[in-house]
Design a binder for these strands. Structure first.
Length: 577
RNA sequence: CGGGAUGUAGCGCAGUUUGGUAGCGCACCUCGCUUGGGACGAGGGGGUCGCACGUUCAAAUCGUGUCAUCCCGACCA
């Protein structure tokens, strides 16, 4: 490709609406252009990158035994009614009507459609297992699109779905996919961590996420991991052992005391001269519009996804002061934040965290302003809630649940995930096969996603410097750029053209910068766009040498044109194989 | 959806307070000069100032409404 004809416009400055480095660089280097919030044009350079990521995914999925197909982007309401997700999915599901007023949606994911395909085509256990996948645009009407390609509303995703007769068979495929994913991300030049996670709106039991670990603010997930064993988990799913602390209060019997103006745990601790480990903290949440009280040892915090799962809700948030008022009045109290407690609340579900079990002679709110009970105990003073489960947010420094060593935390970008769905979709959608014994049974399913656009953006997050992008060779839009310093010099141009043609002949995706620009402009653009290799043909050509530069390492060396070409060919072949 | 901010040329911005010919830098076109890390000079093209209504002799500027975008909180590949 000739740079003079390449459809790209690099900018001198970063667009003002970009926050994270991948968004800034992709926009400035002319890869993407925003059409509307969370929706981007993928310009020629970007499309080349995305196709490369897609092809790596395709090759590894095919090698793992999956078959590619393509499902429709527009889907009918009825299918989503069958699975129950028409109501459950929420506002991320983009709904629309056709000219006949039939209600449709834009596919945010394809469990429903694939399940309908399967139930039409997979009638016998003899046909199973099967793994089907597609690479396609998805649309999710995100509350707040952000970070460019990392959280767009329209994005490209690889989604795969597998169908099995037994859990063992699903386990095997799950492991097969986990291995394929590790290969895929490695080939894309990304180091990923496979972490346990919550299965969220997709549903199911077991699930893992593939995280690109970053130190930038683009990582939206907290990942807890152990250095001594291989335990790692998303914060929404992480568990830990707690180091022992004193959970027994000093009071001999329970009594109600005045605790004026102690609205926070810190203020209460200071007032009573105690540690938070002997306080029972009560937090009022609104789960699917109904009030829920979470109680937990006061030195710990509630993990809202865990709480939501414990309640069986699909939406959760902390109650506003007005909502607290409302709940208090309903039960005949007038306490405000800081004084609420589990006793005497009407029509409020109470969920306890595991940490409350060890509390003795503790401090607890009793729904009276400026008062707490001290020396309280479960049974005699406070009823132990019916549901006690782990709803605690893990913190770094707590102990690994597997080996007991301290846990660490880091930020991660989720580029892929794998779920065991079980019969969550096959059962309600009556997607069944006939088994050996002649009985019909629902398929046991798994599903496996990779964000293609997010993977490309994550690669930029992981590989950049102050001059621009440093693409991993396997997903760079082009492998190399040849820069004649002066297009006026016939000698430089002739040799640059010759190098360019030889590179193309050797199967290298090359660009020649034939623009009549000053050298500085060409260098800046080459660095910004992120060509992995650069050959500069300048004055030294009279001595028969060109300058070879490796963008990743920054190393520059003077080589003969043939040596430089040879170097690029071998480096590229190393990666592409 | 709540809180904050911004809409002026492809990009980055000034001008709005105090109404009076729509500007600057980059990018683009022409000419000259320059040619190893975003040169310089001269000339040029491009904007219903987000949109609508209103106030006024006169609105980018004031008022009302509306739409869009971005940032901070709840979702997920």
């Amino acid at each position: 490709m000739r740079m003079s004809k390449l459809f790209v416009q690099t900018l001198r400055e970063f667009p003002s609406d970009a926050e994270v480095i991948s968004h800034k660089l992709l926009a400035r280097a002319g890869y993407i252009r925003k059409l509307t919030s969370g929706v981007y044009n993928f310009l020629p350079l970007m499309w080349r990158v995305l196709k490369k990521v897609e092809n790596i995914v395709r090759e590894e999925m095919d090698a793992a035994g999956a078959q590619e197909l393509l499902m429709p982007f527009v889907q009918p309401q009825e299918l989503w009614e069958e699975s129950g997700r028409w109501n459950a999915y929420g506002k991320e599901l983009m709904r629309l009507k056709d000219r006949h007023d039939r209600v449709m949606c834009l596919g945010p994911t394809h469990e429903e459609v694939i399940t309908s395909i399967a139930r039409d085509g997979l009638k016998s256990y003899k046909q199973l297992p099967v793994n089907l996948y597609q690479i396609q645009s998805k649309f999710r009407d995100e509350v707040r699109p952000r970070y460019g390609l990392l959280r767009g509303r329209e994005f490209i995703m690889k989604d795969a779905y597998s169908f099995h007769t037994t859990q063992e068979c699903l386990n095997k495929e799950y492991e097969n996919m986990a291995q394929a994913y590790t290969k895929i991300f490695n080939r894309c030049g990304l180091e990923t961590k496979m972490v346990q996670s919550d299965s969220g709106a997709i549903g199911g039991s077991v699930s893992h996420e593939f995280m690109v670990i970053t130190d930038g603010d683009a990582g939206e997930n907290d990942v807890f991991y152990c250095n001594s064993c291989d335990y790692s988990a998303n914060s929404n799913h992480a568990i830990s052992k707690l180091p022992p602390v004193n959970t027994v209060g000093k009071w001999g019997k329970s009594e109600i005391i005045d605790t004026p103006d102690t609205h926070s745990i810190e203020e209460l601790c200071e007032f009573l001269h105690i540690e938070p480990t002997i306080i029972l903290k009560s937090l009022l949440y609104i789960a699917d519009k109904k009030p829920v009280l979470a109680i937990i040892r006061a030195d710990k915090n509630v993990e809202e996804t865990k709480l939501m799962n414990a309640v069986g809700a699909t939406d959760i948030r902390i109650a506003s002061p007005a909502e607290i008022d409302e709940v208090m009045q309903l039960s005949g109290f007038d306490a405000e934040r800081g004084f609420i407690g589990p006793n005497g609340l009407k029509d409020v579900k109470i969920i306890g965290d595991e940490t409350i079990k060890d509390l003795k002679n503790f401090v607890v709110g009793i729904n009276q302003k400026d008062k707490h009970m001290v020396g309280a105990n479960f049974g005699s003073d406070v009823q132990m809630p019916e549901i006690v489960s782990d709803i605690r947010l893990v913190e770094a420094g707590e102990l690994c649940p597997i080996c007991g060593k301290p846990l660490f935390v880091t930020k991660g970008i989720e580029v892929g995930n794998i779920f065991q769905l079980g019969t969550k979709y096959s059962k309600p959608m009556n997607a069944v096969y006939t088994d050996v014994d002649g009985k019909t049974k629902p398929y046991i399913m798994g599903c496996y996603g990779i964000g293609i656009t997010r993977t490309a953006a994550a690669a930029v997050e992981a590989h950049n410097d102050e001059n621009g992008i440093k693409w991993p060779i396997a997903i760079a839009p082009y492998h190399a750029i040849v820069i004649p310093v002066s297009v006026q010099s016939e000698e430089q141009m002739t040799i640059a053209e010759d190098i360019y043609k030889k590179l193309l002949a050797a199967g290298i995706e090359a660009v020649i910068d034939d623009r009549d620009e000053r050298a500085g402009v060409k260098f800046k653009d080459a660095d910004l766009i992120g060509f992995p290799f650069r050959i500069t043909v300048g004055k030294t050509i009279t001595d028969g040498v060109v300058e070879f530069k490796n963008r990743q390492t920054g190393v520059m060396e003077n080589l003969t044109p043939d040596m430089a070409i040879e170097k690029i060919v071998s480096e590229v072949n190393n990666v592409i194989k």
